[in-house]
């Protein structure tokens, strides 16, 4: 995770058109060094494999009771446990030095994007990080769901879906310089995965 303080002025925004105004906090300089954020986000490193994400997200629902070992990005197996992390993707010992993996990870077309993280606060005190404005406008999505008494969908920093009653949310926090790093797959790899060739 990349934290960088760029010196933006701390400011507080209020969602104007909402009857029960939800607070959107944005902070600037050193926001991420605040103990509160460190407590919220931990010092772990998040990353997303978009290809794996695309393939898996349709039927995936966030489940806190599942505590399974991570999968190898290449063979999709949990055993042997992936020991290597390369551009945010996990690889097991058997897959790491294979032609496809090396060709893909050494491709100069591979680029890093940074996606902002926000923190959702629930009325019972629970809070969790989400990808901010991932695929849809997070705030619009929440407002719509709240008006219509629906559940709202978010995505956690590894791309898993989180479904929650819109009414339970009391606050979003959006640290200015808190990101997940997202590496693209190489162009060849992307085409191959999309076309199955």
């Amino acid at each position: 995770m990349i934290f960088r303080a760029l010196g933006a002025v701390a400011r507080l925004l209020w969602a104007e058109d909402d009857e029960r105004a939800i607070r959107i906090e944005r902070r600037g300089e050193n926001d991420i060094n605040d103990e509160e954020y460190i407590e919220d986000l931990g010092d772990g490193c998040f990353s997303i494999d978009f290809a794996a994400y695309d393939a898996s997200v349709n039927d995936k629902i966030y489940d806190l009771t599942t505590n399974q070992a991570p999968k190898c990005s290449q063979c999709k197996k949990r055993l042997p446990a992936p020991e290597f992390s390369w551009h945010g993707r996990l690889y097991c010992r058997r897959c790491l030095l294979t032609y496809d993996v090396l060709k893909s990870e050494m491709d100069p077309n591979l680029k890093c994007y940074r996606w902002p993280i926000a923190i959702v606060y629930l009325e019972d005190g629970v809070r969790f990080p989400i990808l901010w404005n991932f695929r849809r406008d997070t705030l619009e999505e929440w407002r719509y769901a709240r008006r219509h008494g629906l559940d709202v969908e978010f995505y956690d920093p590894i791309g898993s879906k989180i479904i929650i009653e819109a009414d339970m949310i009391t606050r979003f926090k959006v640290p200015n310089e808190c990101y997940v790093e997202v590496w693209t797959t190489s162009i060849d790899d992307f085409v191959k995965k999309k076309t199955g060739r």
Binding site: L97, L102, M106, D107, P108
Partner: peptide, 25 residues
């Protein structure tokens, strides 16, 4: 890449990719 067992492989990347490989692995 010269695996202990297996054929040699050769790839073309750039300095950034080599540097990232060094750090990540």
């Amino acid at each position: 890449i010269l695996p202990k067992d297996g054929e040699e492989m050769e790839f073309v990347g750039d300095l950034d990719k080599l540097y990232e490989m060094q750090i990540d692995l």
